[in-house]
Amino acid sequence: MTTDLTEITVIGGDKTGLIARVTSLLFERGINIEDLDQAVRDDIFRMTMHVDTTDMVCKPETLRDDLHDLGDELGVDVQVRFPSDRETQQIAVLATKESHCLERLFQAWASGDLGADISVVIANHDDLEPLAEKYDIPFHDVGDGKGTPDEDEILDLLNEYDADLIVLARYMRILSPDVVFRFEDRIINIHPSLLPAFPGAKAYRQALEEGVRIAGVTAHYVTTDLDQGPIITQRAFDVPDDASIDDLKERGQPLEAEALLEAVRLHLNGDVSVHRGRTRLREAREENYQLGLSPEASSANPDRPVDGLGDIVAGDGGEEADD
């Protein structure tokens, strides 16, 4: 979706006639709907629209106020993001205790190599507060004594800091649909496995117990299905015979940080989009990123034989190959 369209998000309880009320308001103000997506999960309704406000017959502030008033009347939350609101994108980072991904993001931001501002760090423990203070980034601990986060406070902070993108830098909690739906395709997570293998907790331990020879990490968009969102980038590494869980973490954590940063850059640059549950790159952009294996690793893989390209080609009557 192009960045010159206004984005309208509606979140709340599912109600009959809700879509009609919102779309009618837009029609009356000369606004054309270019794309509309809706879903209901756990009784929470979410609708995201991308609209063309070029020829609307009211001011942006008036449209925002009218939609907020309609939301109050219907008992739903309505957010409006005009193109001008996104000139400098704001990143909110959610974290727990592990520092490697957060530190890599900070390094890229401090060097001017990120393409956006990190506006806030929200965590469910206070362990990373000194790291945020080092980079002079606001830090908020929203967890209780057991690290259980207050999601209402998270939503308030995301709204206060006007987050365009949420980055889960080893945030060890599952976000509820109430959060995920509000930021559809704008939450990126890093998971320490080559998804879809080994989702959920203790992914490195799962890989070790299954005896894999190659493990890895995956950066993906977050959906309400745990670790099943559209994959953006992946990295892989060898697992030695005598490897321990700590060995896997030592090999994997630098790749976690790099894969996450790469995914964030892809998103911020508008070079990746989601279509039917899969990510797609803009044309001629893949050469600018390392989405998976390094060129050196790829070149080491054999490229022959391939079905139909050898000297002997199987005749008719054989079993069909798997797709």
Rank of each mutant, 00 (worst) to 15 (best):
L94C: 15
R86Q: 14
V239G: 07
A169N: 06
G200L: 02
T223D: 13
D141A: 06
G310C: 05
A215K: 02
K15P: 03
K202S: 12
T16A: 12
A39I: 12
N288Q: 12
S298A: 13
A201I: 15
G112M: 05
K15N: 00
N124S: 10
A236G: 11
F45W: 00
Y204L: 06
L260R: 04
N189M: 08
F27V: 09
G115L: 10
A20R: 10
D127P: 14
R205E: 15
I137T: 15
F181I: 12
A108D: 07
D66A: 11
L63S: 09
I214P: 12
L67S: 06
S111D: 15
M49I: 01
D42S: 14
A20C: 00
K97M: 13
S84H: 12
D242P: 15
R282M: 11
K97G: 12
G147P: 15
L94S: 10
T96W: 03
Y171S: 10
A132S: 15
G229D: 06
D164W: 02
D14Q: 08
G211S: 05
H68Y: 07
G13N: 10
R278M: 14
S273Y: 05
I231W: 01
T88N: 11
L266E: 01
L67N: 06
G200E: 01
P230S: 04
V51R: 02
V264R: 01
L293A: 13
A300L: 07
I214Y: 03
T3S: 14
L165A: 07
I31E: 06
G270D: 03
D323A: 11
T53H: 03
T9Y: 07
T2F: 00
R170K: 14
P130K: 06
N124H: 08
L194H: 04
N159P: 05
D43C: 05
H50L: 10
P149G: 09
M49Y: 04
V121H: 03
V180G: 05
D72W: 00
S273N: 10
L261M: 04
E258I: 13
L25W: 04
L26I: 03
V313S: 07
R235T: 03
I190W: 01
L102M: 11
D69Y: 02
R282A: 14
T148I: 11
P130D: 07
A95M: 08
A236F: 00
F27A: 08
D65Q: 15
